[in-house]
Design a protein around this nucleic acid. Structure first.
Lengths: 195, 195, 195, 195
DNA sequence: GATGAATGAGTCTTCATTCAT
DNA sequence: CATGAATGAAGACTCATTCAT
């Protein structure tokens, strides 16, 4: 809360919205509550956002933004495709620690208000594009075998989302995440079959 | 709709709720609409369900029920673990075709009202248990190598959910599902690495 | 109030709205107050009218309706044009006694919400048409001299409205209305000039 | 607008209020809009007026002031009573052209906030007094016959208001006003009856 | 003074739920 | 039992007014 007071009003409101939408679903969240948590007046919220919907949308947008920016940065260009993949998986779990509410919202709110779903898809597509590139690179340099890059990207994104859900809703202890990521990578890299 | 009129009232209401909750999120669904779609009076809904929450809960419960019952049946006991796994993946996509609304709801409504989340977790655990068994069996009979059964089960469930989401929200054409499932299985069985 | 309870709900709400909009201008009237005065729940009002605006509109519409229907009936077809004119003036003042709130609203609320202003104009035109006919008849049968029927109709309508305003806002005692009407008619019939 | 910028702030605000209250009813006018139209800050309005009500009141007051001052001047003392009456009618229509918003407001806003209604009544009484004098003068010098001076004054004021309304709301073309005034005077002076 | 960002009291409106028929 | 008219608690949103700069 003290930290929040240092942000400007709009950021405070978004942060408050994130916290609260992270706790309860859309319809159970009151604008007044968000205003209170942000330590601003109810009317102030409407000075920055045209209504509940737009606030929600912008908040999702923000979360995506942060996630994708940091994820790309985390992976960087260096190292083998495997290494990059590993870093991506790790960042993913790190994001949950760092931005718990955002993770909760991104993992939970699949059914988005219509205009935002487009933005979500676009971001999703970006991320998938990045994964595809990474996999293609791995294939060309001989690290990976010839798999359907589109499908595998999809699976990876799915795994990411599920990991969040597992951590957030099933309370998979974050502490174990290191070894979990390794095991997941092992599965994906080496497969399930005996030989 | 004609078919619905042959069901008893409670089933009609659940079916209507499924359709509509499949279209829009919880807070955008009106009890009146459900009653209309079910061709019953608004008050009648309250004869069968104590309120909107319970109706929602029961509807989720139903969806899970159907899914898990049919999934288990589809897999049966026979065949290799691989075959069973394959049948499970196929059933999963079949479910989307057969019960589109249910799939939409199960995939989309992660943020459940609190008491229901417990039921969801239980079902989820059941399913995971079944997958674990299947994997363990595959390991003992030499089909699979020694992987962390818990983690891999988790990943599989995640892949299931993501497949739904991909089909439902990103409009992955269902027609391609056969080959997609094969590619997914290939990834999981043989891994990503070259050798 | 007791009388109102015998009316059906919609009529009760309209009557309550008439009373209250008759007391205070649009923006100072609360929907809740109307509901209370009509002895119905706040939500009930919205069952009959889509909102405050529509309620206001319908209420104006009603008032016009009553006024014009009764005015035409009062004048009827019989008698000389002068007699009919006299009856119309008298009815006009009678309306204030019988429908005080309606008169107050019709006299006071010139600035109507846009769609309703059209209805108002139409009614106004109807009334003017009726007066024109009456004057024309008086001209043809030699009662009146050749005046501009349009203008004089307009003036008469204006006089009507002003009479209301005088009674309602300046508190011209209704008791004197009989003789006032006679004096007005005298002015209009015989003019101001000496000979 | 350029002209407005030359006025002092208070006059600018009043002028802006007049324009906007002339367009829409009280409750649909926002203080912010008035401030913008006057090219001053929202807070500045409160430096000159204690609130929306007072601003509205002063604006009405202003309009009355202008109207009555100019009307009296236009009529002056000279000429026959008939001539003065003629000049008054003509001034009236001139006022509509010159001060359209003011006319609109004076014609439309019958339902005034309570304290102001007193001022309005006072002004109205002044005007009526003037008309009465004029009529009395006409009677004493033999121009007019013996009519009830009070009633006829009232009727004339009513006609004025109605003329406004006719021009403003029914879109009676102002161009025709000259001949219209003549016809009105003809009616009032010579009456409706044949002989 | 002048400003406009911030405020929150005040309202409209919705919709889950009830209950008389 | 079934119904849907009626209800009012709950909440989104507006806008007159204030006050720190």
């Amino acid at each position: 809360m003290k930290i929040m007071l240092e942000l400007d009003k709009k950021a405070r409101i978004l942060a408050a919205a994130m916290e609260i939408f992270g706790e309860r679903p859309y319809h159970a969240v009151k604008m007044e509550e968000i205003a209170e948590r942000a330590s601003v007046g109810k009317g102030t919220v409407y000075g920055y956002f045209s209504g509940k919907d737009e606030l929600f949308r912008e908040m999702i947008h923000e979360s995506f933004e942060v996630y994708f920016r940091e994820a790309l940065a985390a992976v960087s260009e260096q190292g083998t495709a495997k290494d990059q993949l590993r870093r991506l998986f790790h960042y993913h779990l790190y994001f949950i620690e760092k931005h718990a509410s955002a993770a909760r919202i991104l993992a939970g709110e699949r059914r988005l208000p219509n205009p935002e779903i487009e933005v979500a898809k676009e971001r999703y597509a970006n991320m998938k594009g990045f994964l595809s590139q990474l996999l293609s690179k791995g294939i060309s340099n001989g690290e990976f075998r010839e798999i359907d890059v589109q499908i595998v990207s999809e699976i990876f994104l799915g795994t990411f989302t599920s990991l969040w859900a597992a951590v957030i809703f099933n309370e998979l202890p974050l502490a174990e995440s290191e070894s979990v990521v390794d095991k997941i990578l092992d599965l994906y890299l080496n497969g399930l079959s005996k030989s």
